Simulated assay, not measured.
Amino acid sequence: MKLLKKFYKNKKVLITGATGFKGAWLSLWLKILGAKVYAIGYSPNKNKKLFFSLNLQKKIKIKTLDIRNYKKLKLFIQKIKPELIFHMAAQPLILDGYKKPYFTYEVNTLGTLNILEASRNVRSIKSLICVTSDKCYESNYSTIGFKENDKLGGIDPYSGSKASAEIIINTYFKSYFGKEIKFGIASARAGNVIGGGDQSPNRLIPDLVNSLNKNKKIILRNPDFNRPWQHVLEPLYGYLILGINLYKFPKKFSGPWNFGTEKNTVTSVLKIVKIAIKKWGYGELKIRRNKKIYEQTNLQLNIDKAKKILKWKPKYKIKESVELTIDWYKKVIRKKYTPEQITKKNILEYMNSK
């Protein structure tokens, strides 16, 4: 972790989607590392409560901006002249993708295009990481894990929008790298991220915690679905390492990267809920299956590339990730810690872990 502190201190970093769940955690982490953080947020945003509860509006320079507005986005990037960009702004929910497909494609696909085009000739930029999703792959019903060169696809609008973004990222790298573009461009694929402060509706952990806090039954629609659940700090650590390597060796580290869990660690929704209930201390659940909305039954990323080349690997087992997440909510709800205190504590403990 000494490398992170040494590299990011005083670096000028732009985060899009900073008022989102992962964006807020990354913003605070970069401030702890001593970076000069600039941020783009969007309103309305279900997760902006976390951003403000971390007092980030006092620590970083935030601009409320819709990434679909290319003109304003370009002017902002040209004005601040960042060295690194973490593009995380997105419509992040599968269910909302079904409800608002056009909006989902606009934000996730055209929004990414706007970031790439707005950054193309900004000389200060050395690293651009576009965060997509593990859902960008076409389902092949494999249990061995998707590799970065597997076929892109997506049956639902959200997955399709992320696969489309991946194609755009690749075409920009192949078409312009070494010509106008002099910096590294990479996509980061992760999913099923959990952690304290997530307020997104129709996500397992926020819905679960809400039910536990109100002493209501936890409703499960897909108890048998298996996912590579990971704590939010795991992929963020990967993004930070990738940012350093892109900055120093742009050609070598450009391209797609998977950040997930170790092999054979996918865990069912039902098992996650049981771990959470035990950590919380009480709770009841009820299964109400939903067959109308398609989601992949099994989903696993192959992370061999990141482990071998970036020397990144997950630090927490899935059980630890769930327990750490539930502990965050318990301590905040019961007023033992403020969101800022417990989030800082989680980050520092992660940095100091082996």
Rank of each mutant, 00 (worst) to 15 (best):
K217C: 11
K151Y: 11
N149D: 15
C130P: 00
L204I: 14
K217F: 14
E148L: 07
N202A: 13
G145W: 08
L152H: 01
D150N: 13
I167Q: 12
Y137A: 01
G197Q: 00
R203I: 12
S142V: 05
D134P: 02
C136P: 00
D198Q: 02
V209C: 04
E166T: 05
R189Q: 06
P201I: 12
I205H: 03
A188K: 06
F146K: 10
I169V: 15
N170R: 15
S161L: 04
N210T: 12
G191E: 00
G154S: 06
G178W: 10
S159P: 00
I169E: 04
A163Q: 01
I168R: 03
N170T: 12
S211D: 08
R203V: 11
N149T: 15
G196Q: 02
C130A: 10
F225Y: 15
G154Q: 04
E138N: 14
D198M: 09
I125E: 01
C136A: 14
I218E: 03
C136Y: 07
S159I: 07
Q199K: 15
F177L: 13
R189V: 03
C130R: 06
T132Q: 04
S139M: 12
S142C: 04
I218Q: 01
I169S: 00
G178L: 08
S139I: 14
D150F: 09
Y172T: 01
G184W: 06
N215K: 14
D207E: 15
K214E: 08
N149V: 13
K216H: 11
K216I: 08
E148R: 08
I129W: 03
V193E: 05
I218F: 08
S175Y: 11
P206H: 08
F146I: 07
K162R: 11
I168C: 03
I168E: 06
N170F: 09
R203L: 14
Y172E: 04
G184M: 07
P206Q: 05
N192M: 05
V131L: 13
D150E: 07
E180Y: 09
A186D: 03
F183N: 00
Y141E: 14
A190M: 14
L128E: 05
N215M: 10
K135M: 14
K179H: 10
S211K: 07
G178H: 10
V209E: 00
E166C: 08
S124I: 05
N215S: 11
K217L: 10
A188F: 10
D150H: 14
D156W: 09
S133N: 02
G178V: 05
L128T: 01
P201N: 13
I205L: 13
A165C: 06
S124W: 06
F146T: 07
F177Y: 15
N213W: 15
I205K: 00
K151E: 09
S127I: 06
I144Y: 13
G184R: 01
C130M: 11
I205N: 02
G195T: 03
Q199G: 02
I185Y: 05
S161K: 07
V131K: 03
L128K: 04
E148T: 13
S187R: 03
G196F: 06
Y176N: 07
V131P: 00
D224R: 11
I167F: 13
T171P: 02
A188Q: 02
